[in-house]
Design a binder for these strands. Sequence first.
RNA 1: GUGAAUGUAGCUCAGCUGGUGGUAGCACUUGGUUGUGGUCCAGGCGGUCGUGGGUUCGAGUCCCAUCAUUCACCCCA
Length: 419
Amino acid sequence: MNIKALNGFKDILPGEVELWQRLEALARDIFGRFNFAEIRLPILEKTDLFARAIGEATDIVEKEMYTFVDKQVTMRPEATASLLRAYIEHGLHVQKPVQRLFTIGPMFRHERPQKGRLRQFHQMDVEVLGSTSPRVDAEMMAMGAMLLNELGLTVSLEINSLGCQVCRPGFRSNLLVFLDDRHQALCEDCKRRSVTNPLRVLDCKNPRCREQVLEAPSLQDHLCTDCAEHFNEVQAGLDQLGVQYRLNKFMVRGLDYYTRTTFEFITGDLGAQAAVGAGGRYDGLVEQLGGPQIPGIGFALGMERLVLLLQQQEAKLLASGVDLFMAGLGAQATHYGFALAHALRATGMRVAMDLEGRSLKSQMKQAGKLGAAHVLILAEEEFTEGKAVLRNMATQQQQEIILQDTAVTGQILIKLIAS
RNA sequence: GUGAAUGUAGCUCAGCUGGUGGUAGCACUUGGUUGUGGUCCAGGCGGUCGUGGGUUCGAGUCCCAUCAUUCACCCCA
């Protein structure tokens, strides 16, 4: 076998899939509690959409997109751009002044894979459009925290404010002056960053840069009164809802569209991939994409990273996949069991049956491995007398049952197993 | 895109300075129990040693290339 999955692409096998299902089910439940509606979006969009939304100069757009060059289309590297496109295209802002939407699905970025980072990865993406209320920011983070908490994960929340079009330019030019003075002391990456994306120098991991940056002009001191007040109210909201967080004035988000509130859910258990979820406000983005002047805020959770944490933090789930194992011995009895299994499945019961004609011992082994709650033993001798044996695998108790036609026997079994 | 490490059974791994691929563990399977699971015991199935070259009488082992994986950088969820 020399055909393998592509580098950075993974199969999710039975065993792990159950974890994904549990994650999605809980997320849908919680998003529902907060009155979010699901939206399903295409994976392929015009390349231009992402270039405009994410930013021409970002790494994602510059070198990480899967693009069909001849068709000018790209497999989405993130969900927000697509979601806003759909929002604008269908005039959802007219239907409801505030839209709360979420979407779940695969994203694609051509990066070098490593732990918690794949080329096809999955995100749960949540957005609120049409509100500038700081309560929305707080509620959104509270919802993320609730999900992580109910998954049993310990993850910390860091927040910051990046200001708006009014206050960011002033901060940016002050920062540029500061970085110019220290240029020689910065690492190579930061020398480059100070030209391409100066804000990113603030969260460089290099200890020397960190030291330099300690005295850098603070974003907090440059916030205009509106932004400062907004950020204060966000924090007040988090306090009111009892959400733990930490102010990180060096936190900068990578995508160009963020304004004001930004936040990250961080773990120390995933190596270099600390962020399991992150997002922020993007008050100018809808307009920038050709829509009306509508504010928005959103965040994405990395599902691979959550699943890794669930596995790592021993959040195990062991559910029996089988209610009944049908064990048949002999042609006549097996013939009857084949039909009985089908009748039971039609009523909703999960029934497993070995169709290979193996020994009873082997069939019992299979039943044990599958975690079957009960086994119906249809053996030649009893079968000719119209009887069979129902075994409770947990208690090891067995009882004889009288066989009738499959429909009637099915009803009897359902009652016996339920009791 | 950069750096480093690693590729031997379905999985986890032994295999020394080159000399016949491991009674290895897990998993799968058969039997011990003429018809009863999870434990135990005995057997069985299972390998192009990532791939392609080279050195050598001889390569899993050394050299080169290539592909893949992992971790880190970059970036990001």
